[in-house]
């Protein structure tokens, strides 16, 4: 019998974010996005900072997923992320402000006060949030596919 669905699990250290049976998953691997359909070959990857999306029926759902791992098996995808948020949990205004703030910090090249790595990580986080929150608006469109 062909495998028709994927048991998707997204967990972070402080909670379980998603536990659902889905038909397609796009995972933000650290080497690029991976599309996963039921029956995929077993795969293990580290996560980058990006958008994780999954499809149930004709509807796509979006999440942020920041660092961690994903394990893909034929009927199962387990994502262990440091942070993950569903699109509807994101405060778009706040994320945009955070992105602007991080950009401003990164612009101050000479300032020894600026923690470069931290500002960069903050920018990355904020941008993924903005991207995912923006997606959520159009997420309910029929047959919509994520443009990555």
């Amino acid at each position: 019998m062909p495998i028709e669905s994927i048991a998707l699990q997204v967990v972070t250290p402080d909670r379980r974010v998603v536990e659902e049976s889905v038909e397609e998953v796009q995972v933000p691997g650290d080497q690029g996005y991976l599309g996963v359909l039921p029956g995929h070959a077993p795969l293990m990857t580290e996560l980058g900072a990006g958008m994780l999306s999954y499809r149930k029926g004709a509807t796509w759902y979006y999440l942020t997923a920041l660092r961690g791992f994903a394990e893909v098996l034929a009927d199962r995808v387990t994502v262990l992320a440091e942070r993950a948020e569903r699109a509807e949990e994101i405060d778009l205004g706040r994320a945009e402000k955070a992105a602007a703030r991080a950009r401003e910090r990164l612009g101050r090249l000479q300032d020894p006060e600026v923690d470069w790595a931290r500002a960069q990580a903050a920018l990355e986080r904020a941008m993924v949030r903005v991207q995912v929150a923006a997606k959520a608006g159009s997420a309910l469109t029929e047959g919509h596919r994520p443009e990555i």
């Binding site: 250290p13 650290d30 293990m44």
Partner: peptide, 28 residues
């Protein structure tokens, strides 16, 4: 029973970055 993984990263690299995370979750 599963066939071997396809690794996007070298297995050792994944293993190496996974262990500290396990420690973090234990301490948490």
């Amino acid at each position: 029973a599963e066939p071997d993984y396809i690794y996007e990263d070298p297995p050792q690299a994944i293993f190496d970055s996974m262990l500290p995370r396990y420690l973090e979750s234990e301490i948490f």
